[in-house]
């Protein structure tokens, strides 16, 4: 009898631990990433609706990836130059982000509300990896999780050179807007 209780207890504990370990994850396959360059002569906006992201709410780990070629520009020639001359997307097809929500304990995705998540991680693109720190606005409404982050990056940091002849057309610092509608990953 004593043995039985111990066994049940143990199983119960294991179940609890496992429940915690197989933690909840959120994901998207159609996240939106907008690239915006505001230079004196030309305002360039490109949109990509194919970002993938997985967020482990237990550990706070978050990862994103995006295909550079999936950015759509207003002008076809801008898209060609973006891929050919600046991002060199045949050589570096993806941009990736791997980071951590530092204040995960104060972000409660189970409860409706608005939260600010402090994200820190490594952004890799064009063969260069750099640390990025950004505040993301998380809103939970009826269980739906939306995550918006806006930040700026200096193109020179990623070894992207802008020739002097087009300096008035392409900004040295571009604005990146990430907008994700996350769903629970059932796995």
């Amino acid at each position: 009898m004593k043995m039985m209780i111990r066994k049940t207890l143990l199983l119960g504990i294991l179940f609890l631990i496992s429940g915690q370990l197989i933690s909840q994850k959120y994901y998207t396959r159609d996240g939106k990433v907008v690239f915006e360059s505001d230079a004196p002569i030309e305002h360039i906006v490109a949109e990509n609706n194919k970002a993938i992201c997985v967020w482990d709410t237990e550990s706070g780990a978050i990862e994103m990836a995006i295909l550079i070629k999936s950015f759509k520009f207003e002008k076809a020639l801008m898209e060609e130059h973006f891929n050919e001359n600046y991002m060199e997307s045949e050589e570096f097809p993806k941009a990736k982000f791997k980071g951590l929500i530092r204040n995960m304990s104060s972000v409660h995705l189970g409860d409706d509300g608005a939260y600010t998540a402090e994200v820190e991680g490594e952004l890799s693109m064009h063969g260069v990896t750099r640390t990025v720190v950004v505040d993301a606005n998380i809103s939970v409404e009826n269980g739906k999780v939306q995550c918006i982050a806006i930040f700026e990056i200096a193109v020179d940091d990623y070894d992207i050179k802008i020739p002097s002849i087009v300096r008035d057309k392409i900004a040295e610092t571009v604005k990146i807007t990430v907008d994700l509608d996350l769903n629970i990953l059932n796995k």
């Binding site: 994850k25 994901y27 396959r29 194919k50 993938i52 997985v54 967020w55 482990d56 550990s59 780990a61 978050i62 990862e63 994103m64 990836a65 295909l67 070629k69 999936s70 060609e80 891929n83 050919e84 045949e90 097809p93 990953l185 796995k187």
Partner: peptide, 20 residues
């Protein structure tokens, strides 16, 4: 924790990328 994205990349539909 090693690679979160691999969780959804497995069944991700691979795209056709046209050489530009």
């Amino acid at each position: 924790q090693d690679d979160l994205l691999s969780l959804i990349e497995d069944d991700e539909e691979e795209e056709t990328l046209f050489t530009s």
